[in-house]
Design a protein around this nucleic acid. Structure first.
Lengths: 127, 127, 127, 127
DNA sequence: GTGGTCTAGACCACA
DNA sequence: GTGGTCTAGACCACG
């Protein structure tokens, strides 16, 4: 269980991404309620306001709907919306930079797949 | 030439990364002087202090050496140090997250390579 | 209480050293928050940026951790890290020079201890 | 042969200190000429102006005298002047800080003498 | 409230 | 010319 925060990104953003991942992975299905703000806040030892801010982002993205007094629920079509939007954003904004880095570092497909599978980094140094 | 700044990362960080890229690409070789703080500041229309901050990071990383009154110079072994360090950081910290996203979005190798090869031939709607 | 600055060393360095001393002396314990940048800046009538710069050094040294929106906190193990690191640096880099000077000036242990014990009881001519 | 420069002090200052050490050690005697600016500059690969600046400090301190067309010579009484002045400065300004550091780090006389003699640092860490 | 980034402009020491 | 330090003041994101 990773409850560590990435310093280069706000916590609320990381909380948002966490939910997005759960939706894409099918852990959270359309119509399901989001885990309650106070539970998440307690679990991750984070200010409830921060969790709320993360959830609010999901509302703004049209992925989630808030029902008065009941909580927040995942919208119908959320998964498809995500697949579309995130793919586009990833391919357009993130991947180009990533691809450039990979090439600069001279990383081979083997090394990349290797790393994710069995973590064995043996960087070859020139000269 | 892109002199635009990415909002999601501080300028001094991007300046640092720019130099790193130049070293990796062989544009800047070991022993070479870095472009002077003032020049870079003028060229990119940025505060000298911001440039300096970026350069200082390189000094802290042991990639660059500052010689009083002369300027800043790329250390011997900087490139290898970079190849080692950046590879490790990328494979250890960044790639796992990226790999997960790719799989979550169901992106195929074709789609990934496609984007980088013939970008902009097939503009999609902006969000 | 001395709030005067030593001209031969940048202020941010002296601020850094001040915190280091407080950790070594046990005034600041592991887990404790550092006095806030703004407070220190006000207290010493110094620019916040200068204080921040000093604090950043501590972060870089792994002695202190910055928690978003909360403040900066002394890491676990900071004191030992310091004892190790500072001792090594002092014995390796500073003491040899100091020892040489002491011998060159022909200073005896008595003179050295004397000065620190009853300073100012025997004022000498200023140059 | 140490031709390395200490970053925390200007080069001209270090050149000045070098000559002072040579006088105190008796390598340079009163009436002796200082090594020529250009020789020193060449030997240490330093700008002649920098050497000159260091020498000028010695003139200002009354330790050295410049004779037109001949060079710079060590004054009569230079050694005693030094012994007095440097002792006072050291005991008054430097030693107090050094002493405080030594105590903070809990360094024993043995460790201090040890280090200068046979370099064997075995820092004891608490807890 | 916290730290973090940036600017515009000044001044300094060094080579 | 170079880098380095500092200021005053602004603005931001985070909690």
């Amino acid at each position: 269980m990773d409850r560590e925060w990435n310093d280069s990104q706000p916590i609320y953003r990381q909380l948002r991404d966490r939910v997005v991942a759960m939706i894409l992975d099918g852990v959270l299905k359309e119509g399901d309620p989001l885990p309650s703000v106070r539970n998440v806040a307690a679990e991750f030892r984070v200010n409830p306001l921060t969790v709320l801010k993360g959830y609010q982002q999901l509302v703004d993205d049209g992925l989630v709907e808030s029902r008065r007094g009941l909580g927040m629920f995942i919208n119908q079509g959320a998964r498809n919306l995500l697949l579309q939007g995130e793919r586009q954003k990833f391919l357009g904004e993130e991947w180009p930079r990533i691809h450039a880095t990979i090439q600069r570092l001279g990383l081979t497909p083997e090394e990349l797949l290797d790393g994710t599978a069995k973590r064995r980094s043996k960087p070859k140094v020139e000269e």
